[in-house]
């Protein structure tokens, strides 16, 4: 369980998140939804301490996040961003092997994400966008972390590939926080949806109840489904 209490965050001198209190349950998929600049990526990066909050506390299980060793913490949290950040000088196999402590073997893990052994011996630039995405996911899962943070990981993929990878994510037995600005993706993936509007919570609840929200921006988002 990850719990934020009165958390604010800043980018330079501007406040990006304002006094947020949210609870992320274990083994559930929470989608952080909102427009660009709403603070969802910042919120995600608070969890693995890539960004530190300016105030408030975050609890990770029964520990205070701020008191945990950042390196240890990062090893227990998988992270994939939109830009992937694969290391261009390492083969896919090495990217996974370097962080591997999973009960599943590397090839087995890769195969479960749709990568064959031949692809493992290629460098990132020799792989397609979808394959790179799978490598990034395999690398994030290599240490068998209980928590997975995904920042718009599939936004650059074609719709069919996107669907396939969404299904892969849904098959994972993890606590997942997933950032997207796409309502369809949020409704498909999320057990819980947290909708951010300019750093405030506009909606926080079960995905299937978001239709009942009376927040204007949430409503505007919902209307895009009908068009």
């Amino acid at each position: 369980m990850i719990q934020l209490e009165g958390v604010s965050a800043r980018h330079g001198s501007t406040n990006v998140l304002h006094n947020l209190s949210i609870r992320f349950e274990n083994q559930r998929r929470t989608v952080l939804l909102g427009r660009s600049g709403s603070g969802k990526s910042t919120l995600l990066r608070l969890i693995n301490r890539l960004i530190e909050p300016s105030s408030g506390t975050i609890r990770y299980g029964n520990q205070q996040l701020a008191q945990m060793d950042p390196l240890e913490l990062c090893r227990s949290i998988g992270f994939v961003s939109q830009h992937l950040g694969l290391f261009p000088h390492w083969t896919a196999r090495k990217q996974i092997e370097r962080f591997h402590s999973h009960p599943q073997g590397i090839e087995e893990l890769a195969a479960s994400l749709g990568l064959d052994p031949q692809q493992l011996d290629r460098y990132p630039h020799q792989l397609s966008g979808g394959q790179q995405q799978r490598v990034a996911l395999a690398r994030a899962l290599a240490s068998n972390p209980p928590v997975l943070l995904l920042d718009e990981p599939f936004s650059a993929l074609d719709p069919l590939l996107r669907l396939e990878l969404q299904n892969l994510v849904m098959g994972l037995d993890k606590t997942i926080l997933f950032v997207t600005h796409d309502l369809r993706e949020a409704l498909r993936l999320g057990d819980q949806i947290v909708f951010l509007r300019a750093g405030h919570i506009a909606y926080d609840g079960p995905a299937h109840q978001i239709h009942a929200s009376d927040d204007l921006e949430v409503r505007a988002y919902l209307e895009t489904l009908e068009s």
């Binding site: 390196l71 949290i77 961003s81 950040g85 290391f87 690398r139």
Partner: peptide, 26 residues
Amino acid sequence: PAAIRESATALGMSPGEILREVELPL
């Protein structure tokens, strides 16, 4: 690229490891 450094940090690599294994080779 900043994304490479960010992912290295997020994977739990220490600054020294990032320097030796990622930054200097690149």
